[in-house]
Simulated scan of single mutants.
Amino acid sequence: MHFTVFDTPLVRPALRFISVIGLKLAGWKLDGEFPSASKYVMIGAPHTSNWDFPLTLAICFAARAKIYWMGKASLFRGPAGPVMRWLGGIPVDRSKRNSLVDQMVAAYDRADRLVVAIPPEGTRKAVKEWKTGFYYIALGARVPIALAYLDYPSRRGGFGPMMIPSGDIDQDMTAIRAFYSDKRGRHG
C-alpha cells in the first residue's frame, strides 16, 4: 500500500461531514449500524441505478465504515485509478476467465479485516436471477453475509440480518430474496 494525498488526516473527516450534510439534505437515513464483524460479504440490493454507488459511499463515510467493492477494470485506468482504489475499489477484468471467487476467498484468508460490497444482480438492469458469486465467496471464506439495502421510496439505507451460508444455496437464497421483497430501487 502506498501513501496518497487522500490519506491525509483531513480528507476522511471532510468527506464524512459532506456526506452527513448531503444525506440530510436529500432526506436519506441510515437504519441501524454497520455490522461489527471483522470480515463479511455485504450484498447490496436492489441495484438499479448509477446513483447507488455515490449514495452507498456517502452512507459509508457518514458511518465511518470502510468497505471494498469490485468494479470493472476500466474504472481504474488513468487519473481516476488512484481515487477509485482509495475509495475501496478492487479492479476486476471481466474479459479474463479466472476464478474471481477463488481470488476473493484468498483475499479473505489473507486479511484480518475485510468487507466487500457486492450487488447480487451483477448489473443495474432488472434481472430474474441473481449472480451467486457473493454466496460462494462467503461460503469459501467462511464469513457471514450482511444483507444491506437502499430503499428509494422510504429514502432509507440499512442492514437486515447477518446470515451464515449453510451450503444449501436454494434455501439460503430463498431467505435472502424474502428479505429484499419489500425493498425498491430507484428504477423498477
Rank of each mutant, 00 (worst) to 15 (best):
D170G: 13
W69L: 10
V143N: 06
F76N: 12
T132S: 10
S74Y: 07
A107R: 15
R155G: 07
G27I: 03
I145V: 08
E33W: 15
F6K: 04
P153A: 01
A178V: 00
L114P: 04
L147A: 05
A14M: 04
I118T: 11
I67C: 02
D172T: 14
W51Y: 06
K128S: 08
R77E: 10
R64K: 10
G88T: 14
L10D: 01
M163T: 02
T8A: 09
P82E: 07
I43N: 02
E121D: 00
M173G: 03
G140E: 09
P144S: 09
S19T: 01
N98W: 09
F179R: 13
T123E: 11
Q103T: 00
A58V: 05
G140T: 10
R64N: 07
L55T: 06
G81I: 02
I90L: 14
A111R: 09
G185V: 11
T4S: 11
E121I: 00
L114H: 00
R184A: 14
V101K: 00
P144T: 08
A26M: 09
D168H: 05
G88L: 15
A106S: 13
R177A: 15
F179I: 12
G22M: 02
I90M: 03
P9Q: 05
V115I: 07
M42D: 09
A117M: 09
P46A: 06
F34T: 10
A37Y: 10
L147G: 05
P91E: 14
A65D: 10
L10P: 05
P9I: 05
Y108Q: 10
V105A: 12
I43H: 01
P119G: 12
A111W: 02
A146G: 04
V5I: 11
I21C: 06
M84Q: 06
G140W: 05
D7R: 05
F3M: 12
Y108P: 08
D151A: 07
A65Q: 15
I118H: 11
S49K: 03
S36F: 15
P9T: 06
D170Y: 14
G78S: 12
P91W: 15
W130N: 13
F17N: 04
A45F: 13
I118L: 15
A58D: 05
I59N: 08
K183C: 12
R142Q: 07
W86M: 07
R177F: 14
Y180L: 13
I18G: 09
L10N: 03
A138D: 07
A80K: 09
V20T: 01
A178S: 03
T132I: 12
L147E: 04
R184I: 15
R184H: 14
I169A: 14
V105E: 08
I145P: 02
L100V: 03
G44E: 06
G185L: 08
T56S: 13
D170F: 13
I137K: 07
I59E: 04
A175C: 13
K96T: 01
R85W: 01
K72Q: 13
L57E: 09
R155Y: 02
D112I: 08
S74M: 06
M173Q: 02
N50H: 12
R64S: 07
L23M: 03
P119L: 12
G122H: 05
A126S: 01
A80L: 12
A45I: 13
T174G: 13
C60Y: 03
D31G: 03
G44S: 08
K131D: 09
S166C: 13
D182M: 14
P82H: 13
Y40A: 06
L25H: 08
L75E: 15
I18H: 01
K72I: 13
P9D: 04
Y40G: 01
